[in-house]
Simulated assay, not measured.
Amino acid sequence: MDADQLRPEDRHVPVMRDRVVDLLAPAVQAALDAGRAPVAVDGTLGMGGHTEAMLTRFPELTVIGIDRDAHAQALAAERLGQLAERLVPFHGTYDLVPEAMAAAGVEKVDAALYDLGVSSYQLDDRERGFAYSYDAPLDMRMDDTAERSAATLVAELDEHELRRIIRRDGEERFAGPIARAIVRARAEAPIETTGRLVEVIRTAVPVAAGATGGHPAKRTFQALRIAVNEELDILDAAVPAILDALHVGGRLVVMSYHSLEDRIAKRHLSAWAASTAPPGFPVVLEEHEPVVRTLTRGTEKPTEEEILENRRASSAKVRAVEKIRTSRTPA
């Protein structure tokens, strides 16, 4: 059976589902104990697996589900069934959490999840062009109404900019040769499919490197996807936005899948968890106290059993914090 013929719940296994809900649960319970109807944000709704788990465990919970992919939102609603009555969908990127909350009519939320990266639905939909394992249009847009695709970048960026993106967003050591190969190849004919781009990349990466570093196109495809969707810039704005939006006692879970994402999450969460008082200052004023406390020791990772069940979970890293006082802007 093709992936697009499967039910949403069969096409998508949410990564570390139970652990994520366990981390967020005390914040939801705290809202209930305070006599407040709890509200959570799923900043990357996808196919709704984590939201389904949250809504199922907490019958009083409302979830604001943010996603830039309208197709994924429709599949999430299908998956949720009657639970969707407590879902407030918002079409956009998760740095727009203030706008999503305003649309839902709330000023603060109790819990939030950012499950980053490309979704299973997008990877499995061949026409979206995210994967290097089969030939498809070179697209990679998470929001297919956006103007700029991967084919656009490959066609229009100069060699210097291509090299910069591939090195920065893909951490690819052969960024220079790959960028030169792309520029040479597109002068002969447009690079419009994933298959053609893979062929071009193969000409620039030594065979020996592919034997030890995985598929030679993996990092370049990651870089183009990140650049097309502005993923790192959006994440950089989204973490402080959601931390500011939490009630005191609220919790945030961030799940990343590569070092670039985790680095941004760690930087923001560490800053909000630190005192801003000068070193050695005898009395720490409240405005210098940490705003959050860290709930995870470093990053948590999926169990071996979960990785066996869902191979896409293997690279997941989870960080979580609890808000312990009203917001301030970290130094």
Rank of each mutant, 00 (worst) to 15 (best):
295 L>N: 05
224 L>C: 09
278 P>R: 13
205 V>L: 08
284 V>F: 04
209 A>V: 14
225 R>W: 04
234 I>Y: 10
305 E>W: 09
250 G>Q: 09
227 A>I: 02
290 P>M: 11
231 E>T: 06
247 H>A: 13
226 I>M: 10
315 S>A: 15
290 P>T: 03
215 H>N: 10
207 V>Q: 11
277 A>W: 03
258 H>I: 12
309 E>M: 11
252 L>D: 00
268 H>T: 00
308 L>P: 09
257 Y>N: 10
214 G>M: 05
253 V>A: 15
231 E>I: 07
301 K>T: 13
299 T>V: 13
300 E>M: 14
294 T>P: 02
216 P>L: 13
226 I>G: 07
228 V>R: 01
276 T>D: 15
318 V>F: 07
210 G>H: 03
203 T>R: 12
276 T>G: 14
299 T>N: 10
295 L>T: 03
202 R>V: 12
237 A>V: 06
319 R>K: 10
224 L>N: 01
278 P>F: 15
205 V>R: 00
319 R>G: 05
295 L>Y: 03
217 A>L: 09
252 L>K: 01
229 N>M: 05
257 Y>F: 15
277 A>P: 03
259 S>D: 15
296 T>M: 11
195 G>T: 08
253 V>K: 14
226 I>L: 10
284 V>A: 05
313 A>V: 00
216 P>T: 08
302 P>L: 01
206 P>H: 10
298 G>M: 14
253 V>F: 08
206 P>L: 11
312 R>A: 06
209 A>I: 09
238 A>N: 09
294 T>M: 09
202 R>P: 04
232 L>N: 07
286 E>R: 08
255 M>V: 15
290 P>D: 15
209 A>C: 04
218 K>Q: 14
242 I>Y: 07
316 A>T: 03
276 T>I: 05
287 E>Y: 06
289 E>I: 04
203 T>W: 05
223 A>V: 12
321 V>Y: 02
276 T>P: 05
227 A>L: 04
320 A>H: 02
325 R>L: 11
215 H>K: 07
284 V>P: 00
194 T>C: 12
292 V>S: 07
236 D>C: 12
